[in-house]
Every structure is written in C-alpha cells, then in structure tokens.
Computed example of a mutant assay.
Amino acid sequence: MQFQQLRSFREVAAEMSFTRAARNLHYSQPSVTAHIKNLEDYIGAELFHRAGGRVQLTEAGMRLLPHVEKIILIAEAACIDAASAGGTRPAA
C-alpha cells in the first residue's frame, strides 16, 4: 500500500469521479485508475462500483475511507510538525 494510492482513493471517493480526482491531484487519469486497482489488489476487495461512467463506493470502500482520512491527516500533521523544527541539519 502506497501513500499515493491512499490519496487517489480519498479523492475518487470525494469526487465520485476518476477524471476529476486525477485533475485535482495533478495526475493522469490512467495513473489514478492504476492506484485504485493496485490498492484493490492489495486489500483483496473492490473499493468502487464502476458502471456507465458512474462511480460508487462499495461496502469495503466505505469501511476503508475513514481510516484513509485519518492516515492522511496524521501524515500531513507529521510533515507540518517536522517542518516547524526549522529544517536545520546537525553537523556531520
């Protein structure tokens, strides 16, 4: 499981569109599709129903989403915290 896959999953779930998610993330649509497919393979469950250009979360997707949102919030907070340390490097 990779962070990019989680970000793509969260954005597709928010937009209910692979195309809009890709545009928002500045990825190509095939990249977002690959992220979701790889995440589904890793988890072993389909995360979205895809039919006629419509996207809907599956039960597995609905269960995964709150965890992914927490993971992303924690990662963002960690980056902000680390950056606030000043970014100085210790002498070698």
Rank of each mutant, 00 (worst) to 15 (best):
Q2E: 10
Q4P: 02
Q4W: 03
Q4N: 04
Q4S: 15
L6A: 14
R7L: 15
R7C: 13
S8Q: 08
S8D: 05
F9H: 13
R10M: 06
R10Y: 07
E11G: 12
E11H: 14
M16I: 01
S17P: 01
F18I: 03
F18V: 05
T19Y: 09
T19H: 10
T19M: 09
R20K: 12
A21N: 06
A21E: 13
A21D: 13
A22Y: 03
R23S: 10
N24P: 08
N24V: 00
L25Y: 12
H26R: 15
Y27W: 07
V32W: 00
V32Q: 03
V32G: 13
I36Q: 02
K37S: 08
N38I: 04
N38K: 11
L39P: 00
Y42Q: 03
Y42S: 05
Y42F: 12
I43F: 06
I43L: 15
G44L: 01
L47P: 07
F48H: 08
F48V: 02
H49P: 08
H49I: 15
H49W: 10
H49R: 09
A51N: 13
G52K: 06
G52Y: 14
G52E: 14
V55Y: 14
Q56N: 03
Q56R: 04
T58V: 10
T58G: 00
T58L: 05
E59D: 15
G61A: 09
G61W: 03
R63D: 09
R63E: 09
H67N: 13
V68A: 09
K70V: 11
I71M: 01
I72E: 00
I74D: 11
A75E: 07
A75W: 00
A75I: 13
E76Y: 10
A77W: 11
C79Q: 09
I80K: 00
D81T: 07
A83Y: 15
A85G: 11
G86H: 07
G86K: 03
G87D: 12
T88Y: 05
R89P: 00
R89E: 05
P90C: 15
A91K: 12
A91S: 14
